[in-house]
Design a binder for these strands. Structure first.
Lengths: 192, 192
DNA sequence: TGACTTATTCAACGAATGTAGAACGAAATT
DNA sequence: AATTTCGTTCTACATTCGTTGAATAAGTCA
Protein backbone atom coordinates (compact mmCIF):
# COMPACT_ATOMS: atom_id res chain seq x y z
CA UNK A 1 0.00 0.00 0.00
CA UNK A 2 2.86 2.34 0.72
CA UNK A 3 4.75 4.15 -2.02
CA UNK A 4 7.70 1.88 -1.35
CA UNK A 5 6.36 -1.54 -2.10
CA UNK A 6 7.21 -4.92 -0.69
CA UNK A 7 10.86 -5.67 -1.49
CA UNK A 8 10.03 -9.30 -2.19
CA UNK A 9 7.66 -8.31 -4.97
CA UNK A 10 8.75 -7.33 -8.46
CA UNK A 11 9.23 -3.55 -8.42
CA UNK A 12 6.65 -1.41 -10.17
CA UNK A 13 7.70 0.52 -13.22
CA UNK A 14 7.85 3.90 -11.43
CA UNK A 15 9.82 2.30 -8.66
CA UNK A 16 12.25 0.67 -10.99
CA UNK A 17 12.85 3.96 -12.69
CA UNK A 18 13.59 5.65 -9.37
CA UNK A 19 16.01 2.88 -8.54
CA UNK A 20 17.82 3.13 -11.83
CA UNK A 21 17.96 6.90 -11.65
CA UNK A 22 19.34 6.72 -8.13
CA UNK A 23 21.94 4.20 -9.19
CA UNK A 24 23.04 6.40 -12.06
CA UNK A 25 23.21 9.46 -9.79
CA UNK A 26 25.25 7.61 -7.18
CA UNK A 27 27.80 6.43 -9.71
CA UNK A 28 27.89 9.84 -11.35
CA UNK A 29 28.61 11.48 -8.01
CA UNK A 30 31.33 8.99 -7.28
CA UNK A 31 33.01 9.41 -10.64
CA UNK A 32 32.69 13.19 -10.71
CA UNK A 33 34.28 13.26 -7.25
CA UNK A 34 37.06 10.90 -8.27
CA UNK A 35 38.06 12.27 -11.65
CA UNK A 36 36.21 15.55 -12.18
CA UNK A 37 33.74 16.74 -14.77
CA UNK A 38 35.78 16.39 -17.94
CA UNK A 39 37.28 12.98 -17.31
CA UNK A 40 33.99 11.50 -16.23
CA UNK A 41 32.28 10.21 -19.35
CA UNK A 42 28.63 9.44 -19.79
CA UNK A 43 29.72 6.03 -20.94
CA UNK A 44 31.71 5.39 -17.78
CA UNK A 45 28.79 6.42 -15.58
CA UNK A 46 26.48 4.18 -17.57
CA UNK A 47 28.81 1.22 -17.32
CA UNK A 48 29.27 1.72 -13.56
CA UNK A 49 25.51 1.90 -13.13
CA UNK A 50 25.11 -1.16 -15.35
CA UNK A 51 22.99 0.68 -17.85
CA UNK A 52 23.13 1.87 -21.45
CA UNK A 53 24.62 5.32 -22.12
CA UNK A 54 21.50 6.29 -24.02
CA UNK A 55 19.46 5.81 -20.87
CA UNK A 56 21.57 8.32 -18.99
CA UNK A 57 20.88 10.85 -21.71
CA UNK A 58 17.20 9.96 -21.73
CA UNK A 59 16.87 10.62 -18.00
CA UNK A 60 19.16 13.62 -17.59
CA UNK A 61 19.12 15.23 -21.05
CA UNK A 62 22.80 16.25 -21.03
CA UNK A 63 26.04 15.72 -19.16
CA UNK A 64 25.75 19.23 -17.81
CA UNK A 65 22.36 18.51 -16.23
CA UNK A 66 23.55 15.19 -14.90
CA UNK A 67 26.31 17.04 -13.10
CA UNK A 68 23.83 19.56 -11.73
CA UNK A 69 21.57 16.82 -10.38
CA UNK A 70 24.50 14.83 -9.00
CA UNK A 71 25.88 17.79 -7.05
CA UNK A 72 22.71 19.46 -5.78
CA UNK A 73 22.04 19.69 -2.07
CA UNK A 74 25.71 19.84 -1.20
CA UNK A 75 26.12 22.85 1.06
CA UNK A 76 23.09 24.12 2.97
CA UNK A 77 23.43 27.73 4.23
CA UNK A 78 24.83 28.42 7.69
CA UNK A 79 22.48 29.31 10.56
CA UNK A 80 24.36 32.52 11.33
CA UNK A 81 24.77 34.34 14.66
CA UNK A 82 27.60 36.11 16.45
CA UNK A 83 31.18 35.99 15.24
CA UNK A 84 32.11 33.21 17.64
CA UNK A 85 29.00 31.25 16.78
CA UNK A 86 29.65 31.42 13.06
CA UNK A 87 33.26 30.42 13.60
CA UNK A 88 32.11 27.44 15.62
CA UNK A 89 29.57 26.49 12.95
CA UNK A 90 32.30 26.58 10.35
CA UNK A 91 34.56 24.40 12.46
CA UNK A 92 31.72 21.94 12.94
CA UNK A 93 31.14 21.82 9.20
CA UNK A 94 34.84 21.31 8.74
CA UNK A 95 34.88 18.41 11.18
CA UNK A 96 31.99 16.85 9.34
CA UNK A 97 33.59 17.25 5.95
CA UNK A 98 36.81 15.78 7.29
CA UNK A 99 35.14 12.76 8.79
CA UNK A 100 32.54 11.93 6.18
CA UNK A 101 33.86 12.60 2.67
CA UNK A 102 30.71 14.34 1.44
CA UNK A 103 30.63 13.11 -2.09
CA UNK A 104 28.42 15.86 -3.57
CA UNK A 105 30.79 18.52 -2.26
CA UNK A 106 33.82 16.59 -3.45
CA UNK A 107 32.38 16.36 -6.95
CA UNK A 108 32.07 20.14 -7.01
CA UNK A 109 35.48 20.69 -5.44
CA UNK A 110 37.19 18.27 -7.80
CA UNK A 111 35.76 20.11 -10.79
CA UNK A 112 35.96 23.71 -9.58
CA UNK A 113 39.25 24.53 -11.28
CA UNK A 114 38.33 23.28 -14.73
CA UNK A 115 34.54 23.43 -14.93
CA UNK A 116 33.09 26.95 -14.81
CA UNK A 117 29.75 25.76 -13.46
CA UNK A 118 31.47 24.11 -10.49
CA UNK A 119 33.56 27.22 -9.85
CA UNK A 120 30.35 29.23 -9.78
CA UNK A 121 28.85 26.95 -7.17
CA UNK A 122 31.94 27.28 -4.98
CA UNK A 123 31.70 31.06 -5.22
CA UNK A 124 28.08 30.88 -4.13
CA UNK A 125 28.96 28.84 -1.07
CA UNK A 126 31.69 31.31 -0.25
CA UNK A 127 29.22 34.17 -0.56
CA UNK A 128 27.02 32.54 2.02
CA UNK A 129 29.97 32.34 4.41
CA UNK A 130 30.81 35.93 3.65
CA UNK A 131 27.29 37.10 4.35
CA UNK A 132 27.15 35.37 7.73
CA UNK A 133 30.54 36.55 8.84
CA UNK A 134 30.04 40.08 7.59
CA UNK A 135 26.74 40.21 9.45
CA UNK A 136 28.54 39.13 12.60
CA UNK A 137 31.56 41.42 12.25
CA UNK A 138 30.75 44.71 10.57
CA UNK A 139 34.44 45.33 10.06
CA UNK A 140 35.72 47.05 6.97
CA UNK A 141 37.78 43.95 6.14
CA UNK A 142 34.93 41.57 6.92
CA UNK A 143 34.37 40.54 3.31
CA UNK A 144 38.01 39.79 2.74
CA UNK A 145 38.37 37.99 6.06
CA UNK A 146 35.34 35.87 5.34
CA UNK A 147 36.69 34.84 1.96
CA UNK A 148 39.99 33.92 3.55
CA UNK A 149 38.05 31.61 5.84
CA UNK A 150 36.47 30.04 2.77
CA UNK A 151 39.87 29.73 1.15
CA UNK A 152 41.28 27.97 4.20
CA UNK A 153 38.39 25.52 4.38
CA UNK A 154 38.67 24.80 0.68
CA UNK A 155 42.41 24.30 0.98
CA UNK A 156 42.04 21.84 3.83
CA UNK A 157 39.33 19.83 2.07
CA UNK A 158 41.41 19.75 -1.11
CA UNK A 159 44.55 18.75 0.74
CA UNK A 160 42.86 15.94 2.61
CA UNK A 161 40.43 14.42 0.14
CA UNK A 162 41.64 15.36 -3.32
CA UNK A 163 45.40 15.92 -3.28
CA UNK A 164 45.73 13.62 -0.28
CA UNK A 165 48.70 15.19 1.48
CA UNK A 166 50.39 12.46 3.51
CA UNK A 167 49.65 13.47 7.10
CA UNK A 168 46.54 15.48 6.40
CA UNK A 169 44.85 12.57 4.64
CA UNK A 170 45.22 10.29 7.65
CA UNK A 171 44.93 12.61 10.62
CA UNK A 172 42.08 12.54 13.10
CA UNK A 173 39.40 15.13 12.25
CA UNK A 174 39.22 16.42 15.81
CA UNK A 175 42.94 16.95 15.93
CA UNK A 176 42.84 18.90 12.69
CA UNK A 177 39.99 21.05 13.92
CA UNK A 178 41.81 21.82 17.15
CA UNK A 179 44.96 22.85 15.34
CA UNK A 180 42.95 25.01 12.98
CA UNK A 181 40.71 26.67 15.55
CA UNK A 182 43.09 29.52 16.44
CA UNK A 183 43.63 30.25 12.76
CA UNK A 184 39.92 30.47 12.02
CA UNK A 185 39.28 32.58 15.08
CA UNK A 186 42.07 34.97 14.21
CA UNK A 187 40.35 35.46 10.87
CA UNK A 188 36.89 36.05 12.28
CA UNK A 189 38.16 38.45 14.92
CA UNK A 190 38.66 41.98 13.65
CA UNK A 191 41.71 42.95 15.70
CA UNK A 192 45.33 43.10 14.68
CA UNK B 1 79.43 37.56 -32.18
CA UNK B 2 77.36 36.87 -29.10
CA UNK B 3 75.01 33.94 -28.92
CA UNK B 4 72.15 36.40 -29.10
CA UNK B 5 72.67 38.09 -32.42
CA UNK B 6 71.89 41.58 -33.65
CA UNK B 7 68.12 42.00 -33.50
CA UNK B 8 68.16 43.92 -36.78
CA UNK B 9 69.65 40.94 -38.60
CA UNK B 10 67.69 37.93 -39.77
CA UNK B 11 67.76 35.41 -36.91
CA UNK B 12 69.93 32.37 -37.30
CA UNK B 13 68.28 29.00 -37.50
CA UNK B 14 69.15 27.96 -33.95
CA UNK B 15 67.96 31.30 -32.73
CA UNK B 16 64.71 31.09 -34.58
CA UNK B 17 64.06 27.69 -33.11
CA UNK B 18 64.66 29.01 -29.61
CA UNK B 19 62.25 31.83 -30.31
CA UNK B 20 59.55 29.55 -31.62
CA UNK B 21 60.01 27.11 -28.78
CA UNK B 22 59.80 29.94 -26.26
CA UNK B 23 56.66 31.27 -27.91
CA UNK B 24 55.04 27.85 -27.77
CA UNK B 25 56.02 27.42 -24.13
CA UNK B 26 54.68 30.83 -23.18
CA UNK B 27 51.32 30.17 -24.79
CA UNK B 28 51.20 26.68 -23.34
CA UNK B 29 51.82 28.05 -19.85
CA UNK B 30 49.12 30.64 -20.31
CA UNK B 31 46.54 28.17 -21.58
CA UNK B 32 47.37 25.50 -19.02
CA UNK B 33 46.99 28.15 -16.31
CA UNK B 34 43.70 29.42 -17.74
CA UNK B 35 41.91 26.19 -18.55
CA UNK B 36 43.94 23.31 -17.13
CA UNK B 37 45.62 20.30 -18.67
CA UNK B 38 42.65 18.55 -20.23
CA UNK B 39 40.96 21.55 -21.79
CA UNK B 40 44.19 22.88 -23.22
CA UNK B 41 44.61 21.29 -26.63
CA UNK B 42 47.79 21.01 -28.61
CA UNK B 43 45.89 22.65 -31.41
CA UNK B 44 44.95 25.64 -29.27
CA UNK B 45 48.53 26.09 -28.11
CA UNK B 46 49.75 25.90 -31.70
CA UNK B 47 47.21 28.42 -32.91
CA UNK B 48 48.04 30.82 -30.08
CA UNK B 49 51.74 30.50 -30.87
CA UNK B 50 50.98 30.94 -34.58
CA UNK B 51 52.43 27.61 -35.49
CA UNK B 52 51.34 24.25 -36.81
CA UNK B 53 50.21 21.60 -34.28
CA UNK B 54 52.68 19.16 -35.76
CA UNK B 55 55.52 21.46 -34.80
CA UNK B 56 54.50 21.40 -31.17
CA UNK B 57 54.65 17.62 -31.27
CA UNK B 58 57.96 17.72 -33.10
CA UNK B 59 59.56 19.88 -30.42
CA UNK B 60 57.97 18.43 -27.29
CA UNK B 61 57.14 14.86 -28.29
CA UNK B 62 53.85 14.67 -26.38
CA UNK B 63 51.33 16.82 -24.57
CA UNK B 64 52.53 15.34 -21.30
CA UNK B 65 56.09 16.50 -21.92
CA UNK B 66 54.93 19.89 -23.10
CA UNK B 67 53.16 20.28 -19.77
CA UNK B 68 56.27 19.20 -17.89
CA UNK B 69 58.42 21.75 -19.74
CA UNK B 70 55.83 24.49 -19.37
CA UNK B 71 55.59 24.05 -15.60
CA UNK B 72 59.18 23.39 -14.63
CA UNK B 73 61.05 25.78 -12.37
CA UNK B 74 57.87 26.80 -10.57
CA UNK B 75 58.64 26.44 -6.87
CA UNK B 76 62.27 26.50 -5.72
CA UNK B 77 62.84 25.00 -2.25
CA UNK B 78 62.72 27.19 0.83
CA UNK B 79 65.96 28.32 2.52
CA UNK B 80 64.89 26.94 5.90
CA UNK B 81 65.81 28.13 9.39
CA UNK B 82 63.97 28.60 12.67
CA UNK B 83 60.22 28.32 12.97
CA UNK B 84 59.69 32.07 12.75
CA UNK B 85 62.08 32.37 9.84
CA UNK B 86 60.32 29.67 7.86
CA UNK B 87 56.95 31.24 8.63
CA UNK B 88 58.27 34.56 7.35
CA UNK B 89 59.67 32.94 4.23
CA UNK B 90 56.29 31.39 3.55
CA UNK B 91 54.54 34.71 4.00
CA UNK B 92 57.02 36.33 1.63
CA UNK B 93 56.35 33.64 -0.95
CA UNK B 94 52.66 34.19 -0.44
CA UNK B 95 53.00 37.92 -1.00
CA UNK B 96 54.90 37.25 -4.17
CA UNK B 97 52.39 34.77 -5.48
CA UNK B 98 49.58 37.19 -4.68
CA UNK B 99 51.20 40.09 -6.45
CA UNK B 100 52.69 38.43 -9.49
CA UNK B 101 50.43 35.64 -10.76
CA UNK B 102 53.26 33.13 -11.26
CA UNK B 103 52.02 31.43 -14.38
CA UNK B 104 54.01 28.20 -14.02
CA UNK B 105 52.58 27.64 -10.56
CA UNK B 106 49.09 28.52 -11.72
CA UNK B 107 49.31 25.98 -14.51
CA UNK B 108 50.11 23.31 -11.94
CA UNK B 109 47.48 24.52 -9.48
CA UNK B 110 44.79 24.71 -12.14
CA UNK B 111 45.45 21.14 -13.14
CA UNK B 112 46.16 19.56 -9.75
CA UNK B 113 42.64 18.24 -9.17
CA UNK B 114 42.24 16.50 -12.50
CA UNK B 115 45.75 15.73 -13.72
CA UNK B 116 47.66 13.21 -11.57
CA UNK B 117 51.05 14.55 -12.65
CA UNK B 118 50.13 18.02 -11.44
CA UNK B 119 48.81 16.64 -8.15
CA UNK B 120 52.11 14.87 -7.68
CA UNK B 121 54.03 18.10 -8.17
CA UNK B 122 51.88 19.87 -5.58
CA UNK B 123 52.56 17.07 -3.11
CA UNK B 124 56.28 17.48 -3.71
CA UNK B 125 56.13 21.19 -2.99
CA UNK B 126 54.17 20.48 0.15
CA UNK B 127 56.79 17.95 1.23
CA UNK B 128 59.46 20.61 0.97
CA UNK B 129 57.41 22.88 3.24
CA UNK B 130 56.88 19.99 5.60
CA UNK B 131 60.58 19.20 5.77
CA UNK B 132 61.54 22.79 6.55
CA UNK B 133 58.88 23.27 9.17
CA UNK B 134 59.45 19.88 10.78
CA UNK B 135 63.14 20.66 10.98
CA UNK B 136 62.31 23.92 12.74
CA UNK B 137 59.69 22.51 15.12
CA UNK B 138 60.39 18.94 16.17
CA UNK B 139 56.85 18.69 17.45
CA UNK B 140 54.89 15.48 17.18
CA UNK B 141 52.28 17.28 15.13
CA UNK B 142 54.85 19.07 13.00
CA UNK B 143 54.07 17.09 9.84
CA UNK B 144 50.37 17.71 10.09
CA UNK B 145 50.83 21.37 10.97
CA UNK B 146 53.14 21.88 8.04
CA UNK B 147 50.67 20.35 5.64
CA UNK B 148 47.96 22.57 7.02
CA UNK B 149 50.17 25.52 6.16
CA UNK B 150 50.46 24.18 2.63
CA UNK B 151 46.71 23.70 2.47
CA UNK B 152 46.12 27.28 3.57
CA UNK B 153 48.53 28.68 1.00
CA UNK B 154 47.00 26.55 -1.74
CA UNK B 155 43.51 27.63 -0.72
CA UNK B 156 44.43 31.30 -0.84
CA UNK B 157 46.11 31.04 -4.23
CA UNK B 158 43.16 29.10 -5.59
CA UNK B 159 40.66 31.56 -4.16
CA UNK B 160 42.45 34.58 -5.56
CA UNK B 161 43.72 33.50 -8.95
CA UNK B 162 41.62 30.55 -10.04
CA UNK B 163 38.19 30.72 -8.42
CA UNK B 164 38.50 34.49 -8.10
CA UNK B 165 36.50 35.11 -4.95
CA UNK B 166 35.19 38.66 -5.11
CA UNK B 167 37.16 40.45 -2.40
CA UNK B 168 40.13 38.13 -2.37
CA UNK B 169 40.75 38.62 -6.08
CA UNK B 170 41.04 42.38 -5.75
CA UNK B 171 42.58 42.88 -2.32
CA UNK B 172 46.03 44.32 -1.73
CA UNK B 173 48.63 41.57 -1.26
CA UNK B 174 50.11 43.22 1.82
CA UNK B 175 46.72 43.46 3.46
CA UNK B 176 46.07 39.78 2.80
CA UNK B 177 49.44 38.81 4.21
CA UNK B 178 48.86 40.85 7.36
CA UNK B 179 45.47 39.29 7.96
CA UNK B 180 46.92 35.84 7.41
CA UNK B 181 50.06 36.24 9.48
CA UNK B 182 48.52 35.28 12.83
CA UNK B 183 46.94 32.22 11.23
CA UNK B 184 50.21 31.01 9.78
CA UNK B 185 52.09 31.66 12.98
CA UNK B 186 49.54 29.80 15.03
CA UNK B 187 50.15 26.83 12.76
CA UNK B 188 53.95 26.96 12.95
CA UNK B 189 53.93 27.40 16.73
CA UNK B 190 53.59 24.12 18.63
CA UNK B 191 51.51 25.37 21.55
CA UNK B 192 47.80 25.09 22.14
C1' DT C 1 77.49 25.11 -56.25
C1' DG C 2 75.89 20.98 -54.36
C1' DA C 3 74.82 17.95 -50.43
C1' DC C 4 72.89 17.80 -46.14
C1' DT C 5 70.25 19.43 -42.31
C1' DT C 6 66.22 21.13 -40.25
C1' DA C 7 62.33 24.36 -39.27
C1' DT C 8 57.81 24.14 -40.63
C1' DT C 9 53.45 22.76 -42.82
C1' DC C 10 49.96 19.54 -44.63
C1' DA C 11 46.98 15.74 -44.69
C1' DA C 12 45.36 11.98 -42.45
C1' DC C 13 44.39 8.18 -39.01
C1' DG C 14 42.33 6.02 -35.08
C1' DA C 15 40.22 6.55 -30.87
C1' DA C 16 36.95 8.66 -27.80
C1' DT C 17 33.06 11.55 -26.75
C1' DG C 18 28.31 13.75 -26.33
C1' DT C 19 24.26 13.07 -28.35
C1' DA C 20 20.11 11.60 -31.38
C1' DG C 21 16.75 8.46 -32.93
C1' DA C 22 14.96 4.14 -34.17
C1' DA C 23 13.69 -0.27 -32.27
C1' DC C 24 12.15 -3.74 -28.81
C1' DG C 25 9.64 -5.62 -25.14
C1' DA C 26 7.24 -5.57 -21.03
C1' DA C 27 4.13 -3.07 -17.92
C1' DA C 28 -0.02 -0.20 -17.52
C1' DT C 29 -4.35 1.14 -19.00
C1' DT C 30 -8.65 0.77 -21.37
C1' DA D 1 -7.60 -8.58 -25.24
C1' DA D 2 -6.10 -4.49 -27.51
C1' DT D 3 -3.66 -0.43 -27.22
C1' DT D 4 -0.73 2.82 -25.23
C1' DT D 5 3.08 4.02 -22.36
C1' DC D 6 7.69 3.82 -21.23
C1' DG D 7 12.06 1.65 -19.48
C1' DT D 8 15.83 0.20 -21.96
C1' DT D 9 19.09 -1.01 -25.62
C1' DC D 10 21.32 -0.53 -30.20
C1' DT D 11 23.33 1.80 -33.91
C1' DA D 12 25.14 5.65 -35.75
C1' DC D 13 26.70 10.47 -36.58
C1' DA D 14 29.53 14.52 -36.15
C1' DT D 15 33.20 16.43 -33.74
C1' DT D 16 37.44 16.76 -31.42
C1' DC D 17 41.70 15.11 -29.95
C1' DG D 18 46.67 13.43 -29.74
C1' DT D 19 49.69 11.85 -32.76
C1' DT D 20 52.16 10.44 -37.17
C1' DG D 21 54.68 10.67 -41.45
C1' DA D 22 55.38 12.61 -45.81
C1' DA D 23 56.29 16.88 -48.16
C1' DT D 24 58.27 21.65 -48.66
C1' DA D 25 61.45 25.16 -48.38
C1' DA D 26 65.03 27.54 -46.47
C1' DG D 27 69.48 27.57 -43.91
C1' DT D 28 74.18 25.55 -43.24
C1' DC D 29 78.36 23.97 -44.70
C1' DA D 30 81.88 21.44 -47.65
Amino acid sequence: MSRVSDPSARPSRAEQRRNTEARILAQARRLFAETGYDRTTIRAVATAADVDPGLVMHYFRSKERLFARATEGGNPPLPGGTADEVAEQLLDRLRDSLANEPVESLAVLRSMLTHPEAAHEVRETSRDHTDRISAAIPDEQAGLRAELVSAVLIGVAVGRHLIKLDHLADADPDQIVEILRPSIRSLTKADD
